[in-house]
Design a protein around this nucleic acid. Structure first.
Lengths: 221, 221
DNA sequence: AATAATTTTTAGATTAACCTAAAAATTTAA
DNA sequence: TTAAATTTTTAGGTTAATCTAAAAATTATT
């Protein structure tokens, strides 16, 4: 069945919200991410339900159907593969690719996506450490921890970020916090939950709790 | 000023029609290429004129303004660069890329286009032999001849095609008529204007006038 | 449990891009 | 040069996606 860019974006947003919870997704939550009004969302949810892509009962929230999930994953796959292309082949920085990938994710051609995947060497993750769904719609669970949840004196490795905004990524770059960076937590301040941390064995610096919340790590020791 | 995909497609179509003539372009001609009705075209032409991208007087036809020309050329540039990408990097055949490039040409990012250009080695033409407009909107005139206009016993080289349809390009491929192929015209039949021609020194075969009309060649001898 | 606050939906409009049918202008041809 | 044919425009509607304002349902609070 034909699908519009807008419908694709709604499915993508519902998918993203569903990753964080097992509850049904509220109209308002969708409205916020779609940068639109709740009334518009209600209209669209009824339409998506008619098409069989979501399960929706009014006032009860929404969740993706199996088919909706499949569509959402194919968009995520395209988005992340294009991000790899933009960074690895076009030479963009990781903070520059999100907006462009938002456009490229709507290009319709299974053949192209799979050739691109091959051309890029079947990458497992995008430039922000997010896993790339496979051709048949399987998205590997990564299960990394948020830096803000790690106890003091632990050492860990930066595996991904929980936010793609340019300002956030630029800050990380400035702090030398790239994918793969080694983080040795020296101390956590009770007052503001800021973290005193050594990056790649350099002299320790302070990182705010807000930043730490959005950094995903694997614990090394 | 913001521009929609539809508006971009109208400008592209008007540009294409303008290449073939110095006259103003008729509403019907635009309607045919846009696969829509004349009434819809009238609406859109008024809108494009309001935005300053075309000069349009009702009943007098339309032509691109300087600014409209600039936009159209940037779309053509993107379309052709993406076609090169699809053939050279993704391994598509020349008859498979038009539809995908129709989508990719609307991706908005000057930075991406210029990086892509560089990545592809600043190609001069697309996989069909069409010239690629430069960053500053200069489209080199190629001035090749139509095979149908060449006299018998001349030899020439296939430099491009005047049509991108998959069926046409697949036929050429089947006949071994690729970019750069050598064509030795043995005879032209008065009856149906079909051409008896040797391709790359192989045994001569017949080519219909309809096919010959859409083949662009450079005369060698 | 009743009321207040919040969330969600409905009702009624708006805009972009399209449509059909009819009217008006232009072009062609007798 | 007038009538016929064609082209183009206007008038009035449709659909997708949005909006605001008001009504209805749900959730939270006393």
């Amino acid at each position: 069945m034909a699908i519009s860019f807008t419908e694709e974006n709604y499915l993508k947003v519902i998918h993203r919200l569903s990753e964080a919870t097992s509850e049904d997704i509220s109209t308002n939550a969708v409205a916020e991410l779609m940068q639109t009004k709740a009334a518009s969302v209600t209209d669209m949810l009824r339409k998506l339900a008619d098409k069989g892509w979501v399960n929706y009962q009014k006032y009860q929230g929404v969740r993706l159907s199996a088919e909706g999930e499949k569509i959402a994953l194919s968009i995520v796959r395209k988005h992340r593969l294009w991000e790899v292309f933009l960074v690895d082949k076009m030479g963009f920085n990781w903070d520059e690719v999100h907006e462009i990938a938002e456009q490229l994710e709507h290009i319709e051609s299974d053949q192209l996506v799979n050739k691109l995947d091959e051309y890029l060497g079947f990458p497992k993750t995008d430039p922000h450490g997010d896993p790339i769904p496979s051709k048949d719609g399987i998205l590997p669970e990564l299960a990394y921890s948020h830096l803000s949840d790690i106890k003091a004196t632990k050492t860990c490795k930066l595996m991904g970020v929980a936010q793609d905004s340019a300002v956030f990524l630029q800050l990380l770059t400035k702090l030398n916090l790239n994918l793969g960076a080694k983080l040795a937590i020296k101390e956590i301040n009770e007052f503001d939950r800021s973290i005193f941390v050594s990056i790649n064995d350099a002299a320790p610096i302070f990182i705010s709790h807000d930043v730490a919340k959005n950094i995903l790590v694997k614990i090394l020791a």
